[in-house]
């Protein structure tokens, strides 16, 4: 028996790679949830909506003040209890086993990231020149149209690098989803290692998987950033059309 078995690493790598789609799907869904909730929190705080504003402060403070691992446990054990109460008081019959385990992980990871993203979103929305928002209103747009058509596209350029980083953090955060009994890359590595006691090898294998995923993501982010930036000099297309 070798001290470090490269062959096992290779086998584990391919086996765990099968679960990469689960990890990515989980991260994307949690990210979408976090963007939605983060946007809502940001808008509430910018508009200083009564009561809700205070609630958001408490929410953000809780999400930053407790470990994500504990939040996952609270969600995983808390929701079934909440459901039991709802069933008891309202005479409903929601089946706890009917809920996909992934749902718990998406909820916990999404709500946690939302609190961090809300700050990014708020800062980037506030960075948008007021004049453009006034112009949008002066041409007759509704507040929502001005937000989605003018403010958000403008804010995106500021927000994308930070939101991208938080998404990369989220990818790595999904490795805690095993606490909700979701089998993704990390959980599969644990399962394999539990079988052959080659813990080190399987963790080396998934380290490579996470690293490669993150590298690819960083490349994609770089390309997006380049794509949405309006060049500082007049582009060839503008000149050609002008001529």
């Amino acid at each position: 028996m070798n001290i470090f078995d490269l062959h096992t690493v290779r086998i584990d790598f391919w086996e765990c790679l099968n679960y990469l789609p689960v990890t990515i799907k989980l991260a994307i869904e949690a990210e979408l949830l976090s963007l939605l909730v983060g946007l809502i929190i940001a808008v509430i705080q910018m508009k200083k909506v009564k009561v809700l504003n205070k609630l958001c402060v408490v929410y953000n403070s809780f999400m930053r003040g407790t470990p994500i691992l504990i939040q996952l446990y609270v969600t995983y054990y808390g929701i079934p209890i909440a459901l039991k109460y709802i069933n008891y008081y309202y005479g409903t019959n929601y089946e706890i086993n009917g809920i996909d385990k992934v749902f718990f992980a998406i909820l916990a990871l999404g709500l946690n990231t939302a609190s961090f993203n809300s700050v990014t979103i708020r800062a980037s929305l506030e960075s948008v020149d007021r004049g453009q928002i006034e112009a949008a209103k002066s041409v007759g747009m509704t507040d929502l149209q001005a937000l989605f058509r003018i403010t958000i596209p403008e804010a995106l350029e500021v927000a994308i690098p930070t939101l991208g980083n938080s998404f990369i953090g989220l990818i790595k955060g999904t490795s805690l989803a095993f606490t909700c009994a979701v089998v993704e890359v990390t959980a599969q590595a644990k399962i394999i290692a539990g079988r052959n006691y080659r813990y080190f090898e399987s963790y080396v294998a998934i380290s490579i998987i996470y690293w490669a995923t993150t590298l690819i993501l960083e490349l994609i982010l770089f390309l997006i950033k380049k794509k949405i930036h309006i060049p500082d000099v007049v582009s060839g297309k503008e000149k050609r059309v002008a001529a």
Binding site: D129, G131, Q132, A135, I150, E154, I230
Partner: peptide, 12 residues
């Protein structure tokens, strides 16, 4: 409709 002192065109 309004024309502003600082133009306020949509920059994107």
């Amino acid at each position: 409709a309004m024309v502003f002192q600082q133009f306020n065109l949509f920059s994107r």
